[in-house]
Amino acid sequence: MLFGFTWDTSHGELAFAISILPILLMGLLVTIEASIAGFAVAMVLGLIFAVLKGAPSRFISWPATFITEFFRDTPLLVQLFFLYYVLADHGVILPAFLTGCLALGVQYSAYTAEVYRAGIEAVPKGQSEAARALDFSPLHTFTHIILPQAIPRVVPAFGNYLVSIMKDVPVLSVVTVLEMLGVAKIIGDQTFDYMVPLTMVGGIYLILTIVCSGVVRYVDMKLPKTGIPLK
């Protein structure tokens, strides 16, 4: 029994599988929430790092590069433990779920920053020259001219990282976030049948990532390659 859910272990594997599906789907909900929250953090933080790394002053771009390298080259688990245990030692106590999403977002911001940069560099130079000739501020040029043209070029790359984040969510179970894999393991621990719940987790993950890739492809197809239209 888990959270009031019970399962059927006496009528064969199919009945067992069906009986644990609802609770696995509850775990799936947590997985999806953590993925989306982590991805959102990665998108926002990545954009900030992309801007800082491209700053004309080395006093800004070098530290930004160093920090993103650090995020990228240390394991997610280390970052997660650091946020969860070390910060707690210093009085910063964050809920497990929030910690997990932050860790995912921080790690992946190093990757999304590179994606943003690639997109930004792919916008023809003439665009920023025209913006300069028309006297736009650097901020307006970035938000209204460069970024809307950069993002549609790199949607598939962002999509890949969204799928990667989803597949990394089970790591959060080590800081007590009960997502789908964690749920399956508890079921296995209690029933001594690991094969059915773990197989189901694998299957659900496969469906999840296929759906997610489909959505990304759809967004990619729908966004005009010339840029997000500003009416």
């Binding site: 003439g126 025209a130 010339t226 997000i228 500003l230």
Partner: peptide, 30 residues
Amino acid sequence: RSKLGMVFQQFNLFPHMSVMRNITEAPVNV
């Protein structure tokens, strides 16, 4: 720069903006 205007060889229109917005964007924002 406000004294000068430039027409480019490659046009350099903003491809994600309508013709109207291409023309009004700078007068409105600058």
